[in-house]
């Protein structure tokens, strides 16, 4: 079984702060981590390997620093790591990202053989788009299963996998033919605490760098310039001010509060 996991390095959102003077995010000193959903995708792929043998490849697109994330993936049990790193990718939106990752995946397939399951995180916590996984599945022309919370059965011989996924107000169980693309929720599994030899192996292994010269990537489909969506401007939502402490004013506190929020309730059609 060959799994290919797409992972993204993101700033730890919990530690990102906002500079209200300059209207920008302060990323300095904020640790970069593997997108939390992606760690569960890696774990799922490694569990597949444990069960059926084979290998786990990981692929990321990002700056040189993203190598750290790939190494971390190796320490979690992945076998081969690839980093798509080239100036031409800078500023890609999800359309261009999925294109570059698709092209990178071709290279991984070329080196390690056909892939049975492609994995991604449900969404990245910096962009929160949840578009890259579906985009990749479409480009790869394989079935897509988003928001997976449980792998019920995999049958590589017969070429299918049974997955439980989250839907509105419940879940559904799908049988999907392989190869397919699965995007992971956090519930998909519990992360293991990697054994020390895996960490050491990860430090020793190398991350292979991919760019526009050693892949078939067409630079005319990448990067800021070739992304269909553009950012017009960014701004910081106004800071939360400490609000008002309500006191019962003869009336019951519930009435006081109600009057405060009545306009909003009206707007929501509740009144």
């Amino acid at each position: 079984m060959h799994s290919l996991v797409f992972i993204k390095q993101v700033p730890d959102a919990a530690q990102v702060r906002v500079d209200y003077h300059t209207g920008t995010l302060i990323r300095e000193g904020v640790p970069a981590i593997i997108n939390p959903y992606d760690t569960h995708a890696i774990e799922a792929a490694v569990q597949m390997k444990d069960k059926f043998g084979g290998i786990v490849s990981v692929l990321s697109m990002g700056p040189p620093m993203a190598e750290e994330a790939l190494r971390k993936a190796l320490s979690m049990g992945a076998d081969k790591a690839y980093l798509l790193c080239d100036k031409v990718f800078a500023g890609s939106d999800t359309w261009a990202t999925s294109y570059a990752l698709w092209a990178g995946a071709q290279k991984v397939i070329q080196e390690n053989g056909p892939v049975d399951i492609f994995w991604a995180g449900k969404q990245a916590i910096d962009g929160d788009t949840a578009q890259t996984g579906p985009g990749l599945a479409t480009r790869l022309d394989i079935p897509l299963v988003t928001c997976a919370i449980k792998i019920i059965e995999a049958n590589p011989e017969k070429g299918y996998i049974i997955v439980q996924r989250l839907i509105e107000g419940g879940s559904e169980t799908l049988q999907v033919s392989m190869p397919c693309m699965i995007t992971a929720e956090k519930e998909l599994n519990d992360l293991r605490f990697s054994p020390l030899p895996d960490l050491i192996k990860a430090v020793k292994s190398s991350v292979q760098l991919l760019n526009s010269t050693n892949t078939t990537i067409d630079p005319a489909q990448c990067g800021l310039k070739n992304s269909p969506t553009k950012v017009k401007r960014v701004f910081i939502p106004s800071k939360r001010e400490r609000g008002e402490i309500l006191e019962p004013s003869g009336k019951e506190i519930a009435d006081v509060l109600f009057e405060k929020i009545e306009p909003v309730l009206k707007q929501m059609g509740r009144v």
């Binding site: 939106d93 999800t94 359309w95 999925s98 962009g127 929160d128 788009t129 949840a130 578009q131 890259t132 996984g133 579906p134 985009g135 599945a137 479409t138 480009r139 897509l144 988003t146 928001c147 989250l166 839907i167 509105e168 992304s227 269909p228 969506t229």
Partner: peptide
């Protein structure tokens, strides 16, 4: 931007070769 909406939108936009803004 429901589970279903996010699932279908990404794949449609890719087929259509157009931009998609989430959420």
């Amino acid at each position: 931007a429901t589970t279903l909406g996010r699932d279908i939108a990404g794949t449609l936009a890719t087929k259509l070769d157009t931009g998609l803004t989430a959420d």
